[in-house]
């Protein structure tokens, strides 16, 4: 009886998944292996993809770099928040969440306004009589945009892992002779690993498939796999776009799989 209820209650979601995820996935896979003109089965689309391997490599590279920067920036922040009082924790948590309340597009455009050749920073430098900088259309700007947009996704899982570390374990380590640095190395850091893996996945997955950030802050030299896919679909080459999407999806699955393996059975799970 109970089991039946559960199935009944989850039916809407199952239908939803079927209609808007599984069937479209099938369509993507179908397009990936069919000829754009004849509609016959072909592996040409997949064979052509090697041309785009440098772009895919760049996407992965930028995403890894942003995930690492997010980790380095986010860990101290998460650690700091987790060790404040209850009220302060709530306040700081809100502050971390705050940028997420604004539109992703708006945030990225704002960065363009800051970094542009005639943007706010360069205008300011000009006022001071200093030479202007070329910031926008560089890899740095794209990575900067990724870090800015996805940093909260790193901080939040880290914070929720660190805040759950039993205070008495820290005391036990101190009791057994650990200096504060050793306590961190031997207890706090190993016990934050699940949060680190979740955080890296949460940054890496959206970063690797992003296209808007690179369009606004990057140049042709920094275009990412997401940009290429967008171009194909706009340019009516859905078959090639589908093939590329498929490869990207496999890549993301492999990455999250590896991260999940490392992240063990800890809570928080990874949302793809």
């Amino acid at each position: 009886m109970k089991k039946n209820n559960a199935i009944l209650l989850s039916t809407p979601y199952i239908l939803w998944m079927l209609a808007f995820t599984l069937i479209p996935l099938g369509v993507v896979a179908y397009y990936a292996v069919t000829d754009p003109v004849t509609g016959a089965f072909t592996l040409d689309n997949l064979a052509q993809l090697r041309l785009y391997m440098p772009v895919l490599g760049r996407s992965v590279g930028y995403s890894i770099v942003s995930a690492i920067i997010c980790l380095l920036l986010g860990y101290p922040v998460a650690y700091y928040i987790a060790h404040r009082g209850k009220v302060a924790q709530k306040m700081l948590y809100m502050l971390v969440m705050l940028p997420m309340c604004m539109s992703f597009l708006l945030r990225t455009l704002a960065w363009k306004g800051l970094l542009d050749d005639t943007g706010i920073i360069n205008n300011f430098l000009g006022l001071l009589g200093l030479p202007t900088l070329r910031m926008v259309r560089t890899p740095g700007a794209v990575i900067m945009g990724m870090v800015y947009n996805y940093l909260p996704y790193m901080i939040l899982p880290l914070y929720s892992t660190i805040v759950k570390i039993d205070r008495r374990l820290i005391e036990a380590a101190e009791d057994l002779g650990c200096t504060p640095v050793q306590v961190f190395q031997k207890v706090t850091l190993p016990l934050s690993m699940p949060g680190i893996f979740t955080g890296i996945t949460m940054v890496f997955v959206p970063a690797v498939s992003t296209f808007y950030i690179s369009q606004k802050l990057g140049s042709a030299d920094t275009s990412l796999i997401g940009d290429v896919i967008e171009r194909f679909f706009k340019g009516n080459n859905m078959n090639l776009g589908a093939a590329l999407s498929l490869v990207l999806m496999v890549l993301v699955f492999v990455c999250t799989g590896i991260m999940n393996r490392f992240g063990d059975d800890e809570e928080g799970g990874v949302v793809v």
Partner: peptide
């Protein structure tokens, strides 16, 4: 110290 509820390292 032997802590209340032990505080053993779970990792």
């Amino acid at each position: 110290t032997v802590f209340q509820r032990y505080a053993l390292f779970p990792h």
